[in-house]
Simulated assay, not measured.
Amino acid sequence: MTADRTALAGARLVLPGGVVVENGRIAVDGGRISAVSTGADVGPDDLDLTGRTVVPGFVDLHVHGGGGASYASGVAEEALLAARTHLEHGTTTTVASTVTGEIDEVCRQAAVLSELVEDGVLAGVHFEGPFISPGRCGAHRPDLLRDPDPALVRKVVDAARGHARMVTLAPELPGGLESVRMLADLGVIAAVGHTDSDYGKTLEAIEAGATVATHLFNAMPGIQHRDPGPIVALLEDERVTVELINDGVHLHPSVLDLAYGTAGAARVALITDAMGAAGMGDGLYPLGPLQVRVENGVARLVEGGSIAGSTLTLDVAFRRSVTVNGLTLGQAVESLSAVPARLLGLADSIGSLEAGKYADLVVLDSDTYDLVAVMRRGEWITGADRLVRTVSV
């Protein structure tokens, strides 16, 4: 096989529609999948993936950093390190998330991140803050929050030079619904999050064009039997994709099960919401203008103690989803790859194992679902030395 042409054989494959096949074969040519077949013997020069499971590369809609680096630093080298860290854990497509800061600083960060989108490193920019509720700000500096005035929202979107993918805002704030409509008109995802919105106002936001729930359950009112709040509105509407953080900290497993039972895997996008400590150890880390302490893998603000993102990587989220929550392999792939790919409008090139799509692949151990290797656009990123090549005859 040449450097840009290879074949993986003998693996369990998770195909579109949740179809799981044994003894599958994936041929890769020029960075794309050229063929997918089943029932074939491992041939000469094939990589023998017997005992392995191959799934599409993961797509993270919401991640702030990793590897000790932050996208909100506004430093290209840090953004590259963060993206590489998550890539080595199977995230082959990343939307970089900012945090609340001064408007001009957020715009500067967006400009830096946009260059990396243009270089093919990132898939877009997600603005989380400053257009969020002071009462639900979590790990965002309250004094820097702003109402979602459409002119300000448009300013940060324009700073991304056409690469803004999503803006999280609280629709109950002045200008909120107008900004949702504007974002929808611009083709930018309007996400409801960090909000004190009630059920009715959330329905208004959905009607105005909001299509995503930012880390559902977290940083929003809980469900009350006489006041269902935003969670019920977001779960029940088929137009809304709900983000969930499956790290065992942000959500109890039964709550995640509830969301899947209501929305179904086709409307759930599993995200990391990871900050700089992802892929690292305990210690002190910056998150925008705030300081975070990580202890036993849990990130909390030094001042106030609020949960400050996660240290999650999506390979861990995949494993938890299957082994803890009992999702099928097809459901896990739907939420980690297919759903976010569709939401981003990239389903023609990523999100499933199909001929013609980019060769973005994650190889897992079939028994433990531990990560073995990662390929992005036909290039092995990590783990190739753990794969066995058969010998030509």
Results as ranks from 00 to 15, higher is better:
residue 147 D to I: 06
residue 24 G to F: 05
residue 90 G to A: 06
residue 272 T to C: 09
residue 201 K to D: 11
residue 272 T to D: 10
residue 363 V to L: 14
residue 116 L to C: 09
residue 111 A to E: 15
residue 269 A to I: 06
residue 54 V to Q: 07
residue 269 A to S: 14
residue 147 D to H: 12
residue 114 S to R: 07
residue 59 V to C: 10
residue 17 G to S: 03
residue 293 R to E: 11
residue 335 S to C: 15
residue 205 A to D: 02
residue 271 I to C: 12
residue 359 A to R: 01
residue 190 A to M: 06
residue 28 V to A: 05
residue 236 E to T: 14
residue 388 V to F: 13
residue 281 G to P: 00
residue 179 S to W: 06
residue 131 F to R: 07
residue 165 R to A: 13
residue 38 T to Q: 15
residue 86 H to I: 10
residue 104 D to P: 07
residue 3 A to V: 14
residue 26 I to F: 07
residue 193 G to P: 01
residue 311 T to L: 08
residue 153 V to A: 07
residue 166 M to C: 03
residue 100 T to F: 09
residue 346 L to R: 14
residue 104 D to C: 10
residue 340 P to N: 06
residue 216 L to S: 04
residue 141 R to E: 12
residue 110 A to W: 04
residue 177 L to I: 15
residue 223 I to A: 12
residue 320 R to V: 08
residue 81 L to N: 06
residue 164 A to L: 05
residue 371 L to Q: 06
residue 251 L to S: 09
residue 309 G to N: 06
residue 25 R to K: 15
residue 376 R to C: 07
residue 284 L to H: 00
residue 24 G to K: 01
residue 68 G to R: 05
residue 54 V to L: 14
residue 325 N to K: 08
residue 238 E to D: 15
residue 238 E to N: 14
residue 314 L to N: 02
residue 275 M to W: 03
residue 333 V to C: 06
residue 179 S to R: 02
residue 61 L to P: 08
residue 129 G to V: 09
residue 276 G to V: 00
residue 18 G to W: 06
residue 373 A to F: 09
residue 386 R to A: 12
residue 2 T to F: 15
residue 97 S to R: 04
residue 381 I to V: 15
residue 238 E to T: 13
residue 133 S to Y: 10
residue 69 A to S: 11
residue 339 V to A: 04
residue 321 S to P: 04
residue 107 C to N: 08
residue 202 T to V: 11
residue 92 T to Q: 07
residue 235 L to N: 05
residue 203 L to S: 02
residue 5 R to H: 14
residue 381 I to G: 02
residue 11 A to E: 00
residue 212 V to L: 14
residue 188 V to P: 00
residue 17 G to A: 06
residue 84 R to M: 13
residue 228 P to M: 11
residue 374 V to D: 00
residue 174 P to K: 04
residue 199 Y to A: 04
